[in-house]
Design a protein around this nucleic acid. Structure first.
Length: 510
RNA sequence: GGGCCAUUAGCUCAGCUGGAAGAGCACCUGACUUUUAAUCAGGGUGUCGGUGGUUCGAGUCCACCAUGGCUCACCA
């Protein structure tokens, strides 16, 4: 028992016995660095420093050189390269703003400090005090008068020419990726700016940011398989949310009229370049609005964020020019399908006829026996139309069968006031006039529950409390969901969702 | 989950029809007081992803497994 306890303590404190305590496992590069570490300690140099006060970032020295020349500065950062030339040396130091060269001369720093400098490795974090000058070859440089070791690095960094290319290592050890591949940091800085711009746009327009449960008793608001977790004290299973939708609409019932949430959703499904099990979603709800208001909002939101963050609404994604300036094409699903497949579903009366029409048109499609007219229309749309929607396109009026939370069209009850936004063949946003008729909603849930009983794990569960809320009366409202990771992919020209998520889910090795 | 591809030094990669594991960077030793992919002289640091098999002999051929990439399926 006590042995078990000891093991747990070590696990919690992060000590990795198998890796760090077996010297014979260390390769020569790491062994040498550990020896240097001990040597430094032996000469009274603490290899892991404390607070360090710097005066300048690399960028500011480079940008303001004329004023900075000959001025004293204190910088701090990681040594990225080193060039020793006997009694003088150069190195590059990298901080959050970029890199700047330092020059260390025996005569300036003295023999002890110069010895210390020679022991430093690429990857070590140092603080440098010195004066700014320009070398003979014209590079702005800090001539060191004094320097401190702030953190000794025990592992060699990837090489300077190619950086870290191995995709698997880049994702597994993002910290290394960030150190050596400068473009990566830029993507995540842009990500942060995009999210800030979204928030500020919504805040300016009177929307209130709220937080709703990530752990839910009923995983609702979307069609997806949830993750299951367990609460010990209550001894009950909980789901990680697949969407915040039903909670945000409860807030409309409560009297909040314009709300939004930017947060993680979790879906227990396949992983791909477009899917990570946890992803960030923006959902917006506006009382007394409808789906065409949501289209206007989507256009304004995305185009103004692009303008604010990138300085242009005309972007290039994977070699394709995409114009995000309003107004975007709006086309009904029936028209879109007719345009791209020749099939006119408005003349098709039921599922049997739809099946025949698809077959006649020679479209290869796996159609389940239980599929309805709407299911088949939607499948044809996904298969033949989606990939062709490169420029921003709102596809409107989805079949009711695939839209269990959207309001029916008054004149065509088989369709709903729903749209999805497609850019580069990908779904980027999904929105509708919210269904606020509790009786209709209950009926739709019941249909979903039937599907669930028939084995469809992605179908909705019955949410009695949500119905209860609707029964109190929810104002008519427009609701909008935008996949933030995909938006960021688009705006940073990233081909994989893993390039816009700092720590994407990876299967452990071994 | 299916198909295709990849896995060799810390990193980036070569290694042909099976015949004694290689390069560049990094690292180590030495020289060098404005270099910058610093240079010059010397040094190879490895469970060839793992386990079996075929063979006199396997980094190389075969099977299975692991991880990853692309792609299809599912989804956002």
């Amino acid at each position: 028992m006590s042995g078990q306890k000891k093991y747990d303590d070590r696990a919690v404190s992060g000590i990795n016995i198998s890796n760090s305590e077996r010297e014979e496992d260390l390769n020569e590069l790491m062994r040498v660095r550990r020896e240097k570490l001990e040597e430094l300690r032996g000469t009274g140099v603490e290899p892991y420093g404390n607070r360090f006060e710097r005066t300048h970032l690399a960028r500011s020295i480079l940008d303001d050189f004329p004023e900075m020349e000959n001025q004293p500065v204190v910088i701090a950062g990681r040594i990225m390269s080193k060039r020793e030339m006997g009694k003088a040396s150069f190195a590059h130091v990298q901080d959050s703003s970029g890199q700047i060269q330092i020059y260390v001369r025996l005569n300036d720093v003295g023999p002890e400090a110069y010895d210390l400098f020679r022991k430093l490795d690429i990857g070590d974090i140092v603080g440098v005090k010195g004066k700014v000058f320009k070398t003979r070859k014209g590079e702005i440089t800090v001539s060191a008068e004094h320097f401190n070791l702030l953190a000794k690095s025990l592992r060699p960094l990837p090489e300077k020419w190619h950086g870290l290319r191995d995709v698997e290592l880049r994702y597994r050890q993002r910290y290394v990726d960030l150190v050596v591949n400068p473009g990566v940091k830029e993507v995540f800085e842009t990500r942060s700016k995009i999210i800030r711009a979204l928030r500020s746009f919504l805040d300016r327009n009177g929307f209130l940011e709220v937080e709703t449960p990530m752990m839910q008793v009923i995983a609702g608001g979307a069609v997806a398989r949830p993750f299951v977790t367990h609460h010990n004290a209550l001894d009950m299973n909980l789901y990680l949310r697949i969407a915040p939708e039903l909670f945000l609409k409860r807030l409309l019932v409560g009297g909040f009229e314009k709300v939004y949430e930017i947060n993680r959703n979790f879906r227990n499904e396949g992983i791909s370049t477009k899917h990570n099990p946890e992803f960030t979603m923006l959902e917006i709800y506006q009382a007394y609005a409808d789906y065409s208001d949501m289209m206007d909002l989507t256009e304004k939101l995305i185009s103004s964020v692009a303008l604010e963050v990138l300085g242009t609404a005309s972007i290039v994604y994977q070699g394709e020019e995409i114009d995000l300036s309003p107004k975007w094409t709006r086309i009904s699903m029936l028209e879109a399908v007719k345009l791209h497949s020749g099939l006119d579903f408005s003349a098709v009366k039921d599922a049997a006829e739809a099946r025949r029409a698809v077959k006649q048109a020679g479209i290869e499609l796996e159609v389940a026996v239980s599929d309805s007219w709407g299911d088949i229309l939607y499948r044809v749309f996904e298969e033949l139309v989606e990939p062709k929607l490169i420029q921003p396109t709102f596809v409107v009026d989805f079949p009711v069968e695939v839209s269990p939370l959207a309001k029916r069209k008054a004149e065509e009850p088989g369709l709903t006031y729903r749209f999805e936004l497609f850019i580069y063949g990908r779904e980027l946003a999904n929105a509708f006039s919210e269904l606020n008729d509790p009786i209709d909603q209950k009926g739709r849930f019941a249909k979903q529950v039937e599907k669930r009983r028939a084995g469809d794990e992605e179908a909705h569960m019955m949410d009695e409390d949500y119905i209860n809320a609707l029964e109190y009366g929810m104002p008519p409202a427009g609701g909008l969901g935008i996949g933030i990771d995909r938006l960021i992919m688009l705006l940073t020209n990233s081909s994989s969702i893993r390039d816009v998520i700092l720590f994407p889910l990876m299967k452990p090795r071994d």
